[in-house]
Design a protein around this nucleic acid. Structure first.
Lengths: 149, 149
DNA sequence: TTGCTCCTCACGTCACGTGAGGTGGC
DNA sequence: TTGCTCCTCACGTCACGTGAGGTGGC
């Protein structure tokens, strides 16, 4: 048994925010909206505690939101992939899901990843097109400048 | 003299919004913030009128904002490139700027384009990194699935 | 015990959305 | 004259920012 088997929830909200590049307020807001599983059994006024997996999931969520420019409602749908992944980890290691159930979880996860990939590819193309246009404009300016000397 | 020499300002706000994929409200808001040059001498209550160049500039602005995810304050700085370009068109065709002035405008325009390109390239890399990670995750899921049959 | 970070309201802000009521051009 | 789109307030909303006042763990 290694020490890393079960990550202890020992990170406080400020440290988590710092690591993923956001603010405590944002994390609390996402929890309020139900975007993060965030502390089911937490006494009112008690500190929120997170583990490394929470950090990874939050980082993924913010990355998707920032780079795809989606609303928090749209982000919720995209995050079902992360939920499926969490479920998978849980059931996989913890219980003993049968063949059919394992395949089901994996196929769900693949579907959600394909959804995310679809949006990312579209964005990648839009950015590429913008970069192309800017380079073209820059080249024209450069041409006029060298024409002048 | 061709008919396209001076584009007539004949488009109304709804048509402009439709063409660039936004709403009249957004266009009015940008004008209010001074992001768009929008009708200096317009009587209160009179219709706003735009030409094809206005459409192009607005489309560029919205594209930058959407794809780079910047605030309207940051967008304002980026739009100084468009301003330089408009200035250039004006002085170039209209008046007769001397050699020095023309070079000055061109170099300003290049500087602003480089600023925009810097941000675009950074975004492009971030998106590429996200796509890479998603493809890797997808491949792992796919491997597990094919391992099962 | 002293800082530090945390907590919960709750109001402010940015970037618009959405009517309310009215006027103007094909 | 009838629709349609436009106009100007002005309040609502989404995604947080920012204190106010108080409690909890190294």
């Amino acid at each position: 048994m290694t020490a890393a088997a079960a990550p202890a929830a020992s990170l406080r909200i400020g440290e988590v925010a710092r690591r993923v590049g956001t603010t405590p307020r944002t994390i609390r807001y996402y929890e309020e909206l139900g975007l993060l599983p965030g502390g089911e059994g937490r006494a009112s006024g008690a500190h929120r505690l997170y583990d490394e997996r929470d950090v990874d999931r939050l980082r993924d969520a913010l990355r998707l939101k920032d780079l795809l420019g989606v609303s928090l409602d749209e982000l919720r749908e995209l995050l079902e992939a992360e939920e499926a992944r969490a479920l998978l980890r849980e059931e996989w290691h913890h219980g003993e899901p049968d063949e059919g159930r394992r395949r089901e979880i994996l196929e769900q996860l693949r579907t959600h990843l394909d959804l995310q990939l679809g949006l990312v590819v579209r964005r990648r193309d839009e950015i590429a097109s913008l970069e192309h246009d800017l380079r073209e404009r820059r080249a024209r300016v450069e041409a006029k400048l060298s024409e002048m000397r």
